[in-house]
């Protein structure tokens, strides 16, 4: 077993710490040390986005991120979006529009769309399609994912359901 490093960071609003192998990915540590299984290992090389998390406000492929680099950072995962006020608007829109089929890409898609809308809640269809160019879905053909993203953006801007 390779060298372990002690790290502390903020995970979904809570201060946490862990000893992590120096060569482990953030994804592995989140899944196995923190039991957050929403983000998935699908391709392991940044081609699919199923492992997307938000680190210090930026979406990242957690499979390509050294776990040791989580130290001191603020991390959000799909589990952290469902809060006391209910589902995140992106999650709610995914549910309502039928953007979930097998759901294996969903956690990554939700986080990536959340990231895109955080940067521009008024993002239009073309911008949102580019925003998820690194997220592969094999079930939906992306149409309902984009529909959900547009609906979530509208809700985040304070509008009602489109």
């Amino acid at each position: 077993m390779s060298l372990e490093v002690e790290i502390a960071f903020t995970l979904n609003g809570r201060a946490v710490s862990a000893a992590v192998p120096a060569t482990a990915s953030a994804l592995t540590v989140l899944r196995e040390r923190f039991d957050l299984a929403g983000a998935k290992l699908v391709c392991g090389e940044g081609e699919c986005g199923a492992c997307t998390i938000i680190v210090d406000g930026l979406s990242r492929n957690s499979c390509l991120m050294p776990a040791v680099d989580l130290a001191g950072r603020t991390v959000r995962t799909v589990e952290g979006l469902w809060g006391e006020r209910g589902l995140d608007p992106v999650q709610q829109a995914f549910v309502d529009t039928g953007a979930v089929q097998c759901g294996y890409c969903t956690a990554g898609m939700v986080m990536q769309i959340r990231h895109a809308l955080d940067r521009n809640p008024a993002a239009g269809e073309a911008e949102l399609r580019r925003a998820i160019e690194g997220n592969v879905c094999r079930c939906t053909g992306y149409a309902k994912v984009i529909e959900a993203a547009l609906a979530a953006g509208q809700r985040m801007r304070g509008g009602g359901a489109p």
């Binding site: 077993m1 390779s2 060298l3 490093v5 192998p21 120096a22 060569t23 482990a24 994804l27 592995t28 540590v29 899944r31 196995e32 040390r33 290992l41 040791v68 130290a71």
Partner: peptide, 18 residues
Amino acid sequence: MPLAQELKPLEIDAYVDA
């Protein structure tokens, strides 16, 4: 307990957070 998805045992002696 080892992590299930830990890497191939890659030998790292030291980690430096520069």
